[in-house]
Nucleic acid binder design. Structure first.
Length: 876
RNA sequence: GCCGGAGUGGCGGAAUUGGCAGACGCGCCGGACUCAAAAUCCGGUUUGGGUGAUACCAAGUGUGGGUUCGAGUCCCACCUCCGGUACCA
């Protein structure tokens, strides 16, 4: 029959809302410890919630509810990352204003989240598109601007004139736009940049302070890409005073620099190119300009380049070396120019081979070395005063020599680039900046914030017929009254670009602390109390960008004294992706003949014939496992593909949380999402698994309530619990407590299942046992726990009941099973009183008849005893 | 290529510090209840021997080696899968 989850869940959701149970008051008891547990807030898409959202959200909700019971002041908020492209795209297609769409979607998301019973303080909800919110996003931008951390620059972008917009690298394929196949050009454009590079060192160093997944820290380190080396100047032959500056991590190899390469965009290319090479160089530059960054790297198997006809002087050898232009050198890294050392660099070697350039080894490779460029350590050769030194020593000595002679300097370089902060979109934060007639910029006064988005009806980007015309973002068509501003007699123009979606999410965790403050971004006292975020849970897809940008802004605010901690998020956890149900796929060729899966290539074509294959889904019954493979029962020669796929509309394997709540209840959804496996791990959905946890909740219900009437059972008594009952309870409480602390929710649930299986057998269920159990169950299945708690006669919510502490004393049983091993193999088990000494345990083991038998006439060489656990007798 | 992570029954997973491999859940098999079914309850379920049934024996945590009284866990080499990244000088 099942317990009446629908009625119960609705009742308690209304109760919590009516009583403002989860309100975190503005004035809190500062004597209590705090816990700030944060979810990555969602983009409220039109598709609504999917089952991935409640995974992390349930985990944080369990923690929030647990910490409240532990006596913490808990901050557990939710909000909306609501600026962004889909709403704007939808507006372009349907004419519906993005605000309408956004509000509708937020409404839907909030209802869905409430139906899962999350204990958010909804009065703290923030919405990045709310002018009261983005006022402060703009305010932070002003601080950046005033500190010189925001600047306008001409930077090369992927410009698609036909679409009238700048595309991200991944939106450009083969020089054409992903959507529509329009040509894309790299062109410089005047854009707002944020000087995140000024914080590179601190962003790198402070990763030490935070408790984050090692992989995420490592990704950030790689992204920042610190490398140590030197900048070296190479004078240009025939151009006195001119020089090419390069960055190198291997100054020790300077004697082996046999040529130089400039990136095609390098400013010296024109100057250095000899007249007879001018045409070829121009052509090469144009070709390179047409390729995106991705293409330059991915599509290119063979290196290309062009000789400029110019020469530079190697400062170590005083030899003249040729200068080339080639697109394997990136304009955006280092100085955009390199000294090429083919002997110790694979890329340079490859290039030198193509164009027959001189190769000189300056590090002696080992005798057995057979490769081309040698990157390892070894004594320097062909290197003058460095000869014989190993790489580290040679680097040091060369840098010192360069600095003494003024030919170079020690230098640390970062891969991290400044953050391109403008978008040619409507649905984003306007910049609080004015452009003066003379081309200078001026900040909008703080008192005039927010600069609101103007009302518009047409959000379309403006396509351009040519590649030269300056792009016109949607805001360039805003009403005149918005676009132009009078200041002291002059007419200023507003900025027509808007901020990227990341902007709002860089600081939302701060606004949750003080969401309605009109005077400040966040109140100083409140910030001091609540920050930093103690636990932050969200997807690994934000490992670099969101988390790096947010850390950057936080550090700027830290320097301004707005926040009190150098890092915003102390502990970070990524929930794993949830895949669809396991699917079994049989492949078929054109004649409908089955094809075994090892013949199928990843693009669904036949390995031998290349023919495109069709497929058929099989049910579990049609499939069998044989060894490592799944085979088709109907024809065991045929192997079947068995795997789970990412949920997607096109595959039709999307699970909708609403439907799970409808069929099994929110508590079942919560419990199942946590029971599937470790939080961080990728897992696949199983409807049968949902039924499993639903059965468990039904058993919980029947522990105390009549299955038909819902009345409290009279087997629930006030009697004194037995020692055995107390032991089961406290074993469970210990496991659940420790597992929640460590975010191991799957095993915590399993401990509760074991307890309930046991308790179901008891003819009487003492309240003194049931009540602590319900308290422990509450963070996981709050609706059911509240309902039974009430049935037991309590009038107050469970939410602030103290957490049931376990007592080791009850956990101790009187006897314990001790394992007897002979030579490390399990041979026998012995029931012994607990806490025997090593000697007593050993004596008891050797005294057992069976043990004597097993030893036979063997000689006991050694005995290892672990009290209460194991005796290993080594016999020869 | 490089960086990070993971490989355990039919499936999801457990084993927290080197000490009973497979907890818990799913599925499957058998039984009880029922006119019957659903629901529920009870028992079994790594594989291979062995037994009337226990007992018992052997093998077993991706592969091969090693350390140890004892290895899923530690060390070395390799294979596969997943995620990230890619001419960063």
């Amino acid at each position: 029959m099942g317990y009446p989850y629908r009625k119960i869940e609705e009742k308690w959701q209304q109760f919590w809302e009516a009583h403002k149970t989860f309100r975190t008051p503005e004035k809190i008891d500062p004597g209590k410890p705090k816990f700030y547990v944060l979810d990555m807030y969602p983009y409220p898409s039109g598709a609504g919630l999917h089952v991935g959202h409640p995974e992390g959200y349930t985990a944080t909700d369990i923690i929030a509810r647990y910490k409240r019971m532990k006596g913490f002041n808990v901050l557990h908020p939710m909000g909306w990352d609501a600026f962004g492209l889909p709403a704007e795209q939808y507006a372009i297609e349907t004419g519906t204003h993005p605000r309408i769409t956004t509000e509708r979607n937020i409404q839907r998301f909030r209802e869905q989240l409430k139906k899962i019973g999350f204990s958010y303080d909804w009065e703290r909800q923030v919405d990045t598109t709310d002018p009261h919110y983005y006022k402060w996003t703009q305010w932070i931008f002003l601080q950046l601007y005033q500190k010189g951390l925001a600047y306008l620059a001409e930077v090369p972008v992927n410009w698609c004139p036909a679409l009238g917009t700048v595309l991200a690298n991944e939106e450009v394929i083969d020089g054409k736009s992903e959507r529509g196949g329009h040509p894309v050009f790299r062109r410089p454009m005047r854009q707002w940049m944020l000087k995140i590079t000024a914080y590179a060192e601190r962003l790198l160093e402070d990763l030490e302070m935070v408790e984050w997944p090692e992989s995420t820290k490592e990704m950030q380190r790689n992204w920042i890409g610190r490398s140590e080396g030197a900048e070296v100047d190479f004078p240009l032959a025939g151009h006195p005073g001119e020089k090419i500056r390069v960055f190198t991590t291997r100054p020790d190899t300077l004697f082996g620099a046999t040529y130089m390469v400039l990136s095609p965009e390098h400013e010296l290319v024109d100057k250095i190119t000899a007249p007879e090479y001018r045409d070829a160089v121009k052509r090469y530059q144009q070709e390179a300009a047409r390729k995106s960054d991705l293409e330059r790297t991915e599509l290119q198997k063979k290196k290309t380049g062009v000789f400029t006809g110019g020469y530079a002087v190697n400062p170590a050898t005083d030899q003249e070396i040729p200068v080339w232009a080639a697109d394997y050198v990136l304009a955006s890294y280092g100085t955009g120019a390199i000294m090429a050392v083919p002997g110790q660099d694979e890329r340079d070697w490859e290039f030198a081979e193509v164009y027959n350039l001189l190769i000189i080894r300056t590090v002696q490779p080992p005798d057995d070395f057979t490769g081309k460029a040698y990157l390892g350590d070894g004594p320097a050769i062909n290197s003058g005063f460095l000869n014989g030194l190993n790489v580290a020593e040679a680097k040091e000595k060369m840098i010192r020599r360069l600095e003494e002679t003024g030919k170079g300097t020690r230098k640390v370089n970062y891969k991290l680039r400044d953050w391109l902060f403008s978008r040619q979109r409507y649905w984003g934060e306007p910049f609080p900046v004015l452009h003066a007639p003379d081309g200078s910029t001026m900040a909008v006064e703080e008192s005039e914030l927010p600069v609101e988005l103007p009302e518009m009806e047409d959000f379309k980007p403006q396509p351009e017929a040519d590649t030269v015309t300056e792009p016109q973002p949607p805001l360039s068509r805003a009403p005149e009254s918005w676009k132009y501003v009078q200041r002291e007699g002059a007419v200023y123009t507003r900025e027509f670009n808007t901020m990227p979606q990341w902007a709002g999410s860089c600081w939302y965790y701060l606004r949750f602390i003080d969401p309605h403050n009109p005077e400040a971004l966040v109140d100083r006292e409140k910030e001091r109390y609540w920050m930093p975020v103690d636990l932050y849970v969200g997807g690994a897809e934000h490992s670099v960008l969101h988390l790096l940008y947010a850390r950057f802004w936080h550090k700027v605010l830290y320097d301004l004294g707005v926040v009190s901690t150098p890092e915003p998020f102390m502990k970070l956890v990524h929930q794993g992706m949830i895949l669809g149900e396991m699917e079994y796929t049989l492949y078929l060729d054109g004649k409908g003949q089955p094809v075994s899966v090892e013949q199928v290539q990843s693009d669904n074509t036949h390995r031998q014939t290349g023919e495109k294959l069709s497929f058929r889904r099989l049910s579990e019954e049609e499939v069998e496992k044989e060894g490592e493979f799944f085979i088709w029962k109907a024809n065991p020669q045929i192997r079947i593909e068995g795997r789970a796929y990412k949920m997607s509309k096109s595959r039709g394997n999307v699970i909708n949380p609403d439907q799970i709540i409808e069929e099994y209840g929110a508590d079942s959804l919560r419990l199942y999402e946590m029971f599937m496996g470790p939080l961080e791990q990728m897992k696949s959905w199983s409807m049968k698994g949902v039924e499993g946890v639903n059965r468990f909740l039904n058993r919980v219900w029947r522990l105390a309530a009549d299955d038909y009437t819902g009345e409290l059972l009279d087997t629930v008594t006030g009697s004194e619990p037995t020692r055995e009952q107390l032991r089961h309870l406290h074993v469970m409480l210990k496991k659940v407590t420790e597992d929640i602390e460590a975010l191991r929710f799957n095993t915590a649930i399993s401990a509760m299942m074991i307890f309930v299986n046991e308790a179901s057998k008891w003819p009487e269920r003492p309240r003194a046992i049931l009540e602590p159990f319900l308290q422990a169950l509450h963070p996981f299945a709050p609706h059911l726990a509240e309902e039974l708690w009430e049935k037991l006669g309590h009038r107050d919510t469970l939410a602030f009941q103290p957490w049931p502490e376990f007592n080791e004393e009850y956990i101790q049983a009187e006897t314990t099973e001790v394992v007897i091993q002979i030579n490390g193999k399990l041979r026998y088990k012995l029931e012994l009183p607990v806490n025997l000494s090593e000697e007593e345990t050993k004596a008891a083991a050797l005294a057992a008849e069976r043990v004597k038998e097993l030893i036979g006439d063997g000689k006991i060489v050694k005995t290892i005893v672990i009290p209460n656990k194991l005796v290993n007798i080594v016999v020869r």
